[in-house]
Computed example of a mutant assay.
Amino acid sequence: MNTENAYRYAIYYAPEPSSAWWAAGSHWLGRCALTGRQLAQAVIEGVAPERFHRCTQDPRRYGWHATLKAPFVLAREESLASLIAGLRRIANQHSAFAMPRLQVSTDGGFLALRPTVRHPCIHSTADACVTGLQALTQALTAEDLTRRRQKRLTARQERYLQAWSYPWVLDEFQFHMSLTGPLRNIPTAELTALVSAAQERFDALPACRFTHLSVFAEPQVGANFVWIDNVALRT
């Protein structure tokens, strides 16, 4: 798979690939973005396997992560090497830290893990990725802009979209690790079962640390995103 000239790249927070957090999230979604393998999903009592598979379809494509800089196309004069170099400059200015507790949430109409408290290090690191790498990216196409305006944007979100290619950045940013796509019209009993299963899986994990920035790639248009590199923060 050629990731040197991928269609798009993204900067994520992703757990260490050897960690329990990576295994738990990848199995929940049904795919490992490191190996590209499809994974067997858990059987959740009260939720049909087909329903669970459909609910996790959207985040499965992107891999187990939290977005720091949303997917972008590199400028023509840039390369994966220059992207990694830019990310190293950012990583050298930020230290690794312990993550706050992550809890299961249905905010926004989808299931995700969100911090129980606002952590300034999460936000400063995400802000640096958004602003520090923007010069390496191509401007959004009209189609890109239309897609990212599918939800009605506030005036500030529209400014951020124009400046940073994504509306939910800086003070609009909310760290989250998606567990499902939109949960429209799902019966209450099934939603309750999904929440309970997620809580049982992720509450049992050890404390989580933010130690590196992850580069993921979309090799071709519409392809699954794959993990390609980690850049360590200062220790």
Score class of each variant (00 low, 15 high):
1 M>A: 14
1 M>D: 12
2 N>G: 15
5 N>F: 06
6 A>C: 03
12 Y>T: 13
16 E>R: 10
17 P>C: 09
26 S>E: 04
27 H>F: 03
28 W>Q: 05
29 L>C: 02
30 G>L: 04
34 L>R: 09
40 A>W: 01
41 Q>F: 00
42 A>P: 10
46 G>W: 01
48 A>E: 07
49 P>E: 01
52 F>W: 01
53 H>R: 00
54 R>Y: 00
56 T>R: 00
57 Q>A: 10
58 D>Q: 15
63 G>E: 15
67 T>G: 04
71 P>C: 09
73 V>G: 06
74 L>S: 08
74 L>E: 14
77 E>M: 06
78 E>K: 11
81 A>S: 09
85 A>G: 12
88 R>E: 15
91 A>N: 10
92 N>K: 13
96 A>E: 07
99 M>L: 13
99 M>Y: 00
100 P>V: 08
103 Q>P: 01
105 S>Y: 11
106 T>S: 15
107 D>Y: 15
107 D>I: 11
111 L>A: 10
118 R>A: 08
118 R>S: 08
122 I>R: 04
122 I>M: 07
124 S>I: 02
129 C>A: 06
133 L>T: 02
139 A>G: 11
141 T>I: 14
142 A>Y: 02
147 R>A: 15
148 R>M: 06
151 K>D: 10
153 L>M: 13
154 T>E: 06
161 L>G: 02
162 Q>D: 09
163 A>N: 14
164 W>F: 14
164 W>V: 06
164 W>A: 03
168 W>F: 13
169 V>D: 09
169 V>C: 09
170 L>W: 01
172 E>Y: 06
174 Q>C: 12
175 F>K: 04
175 F>D: 09
176 H>T: 08
177 M>D: 07
177 M>C: 06
181 G>V: 00
185 N>Q: 11
185 N>T: 02
185 N>P: 00
185 N>I: 01
186 I>H: 00
188 T>Y: 02
190 E>S: 00
192 T>M: 02
193 A>Y: 01
194 L>T: 01
199 Q>M: 14
200 E>Y: 06
202 F>P: 05
202 F>I: 14
202 F>L: 15
203 D>I: 13
205 L>K: 11
205 L>P: 11
210 F>E: 06
212 H>M: 06
214 S>L: 10
215 V>E: 12
218 E>D: 10
219 P>K: 12
221 V>T: 15
221 V>W: 05
223 A>I: 03
226 V>Y: 05
227 W>C: 05
227 W>S: 10
229 D>A: 15
233 L>Q: 10
235 T>C: 04
